[in-house]
């Protein structure tokens, strides 16, 4: 597992954690059954507060990406390719919603945005 935290970013740290780990799970880097480090240890190692890690793990659990086995730890869940696609799309759409506000503030149409995206993608 690879995580980089920026304390100067506008994004809350738990969200950074959540996004990066989700991406690694959905991208197949972290396989199902992978055991995440215990919350307090992760907090110490990442130099963030315990509650921050707790929140990130809870968010992952809510999205169905990990599951907790009491007394053992948190494990990457098992899911079908369909489910994986659904969760991934959900997350991407959420990000796009925010981005779109920005494009709209310039008065761009959908076609214009797609054309611009095509240039850099």
């Amino acid at each position: 597992m690879n995580v980089t935290i920026s304390s100067t970013s506008d994004k809350p740290i738990y969200q950074q954690l959540h996004e990066q780990i989700s991406a690694q799970i959905l991208g197949g880097e972290l396989e199902s059954g992978y055991c995440l480090p215990p919350i307090r240890q992760a907090a110490l190692e990442l130099h963030v507060s315990v509650i921050t890690v707790k929140k990130a793990w809870e968010e992952l659990e809510r999205n169905g990406l990990i599951h907790t086995v009491t007394g053992k730890g948190c494990f990457v869940a098992e899911f079908s390719p369909d489910e994986m696609l659904r969760i991934r799309n959900e997350m991407v759409l959420k990000q796009m919603e925010g981005d779109i506000q920005y494009y709209k503030s310039f008065g761009l149409t959908l076609d214009e945005v797609i054309a611009l995206l095509g240039k850099i993608y």
Partner: peptide, 10 residues
């Protein structure tokens, strides 16, 4: 406050 941003829970 940067100390708190890093390690404080509450």
């Amino acid at each position: 406050t940067s100390d708190l941003e890093r390690c404080a829970d509450y």
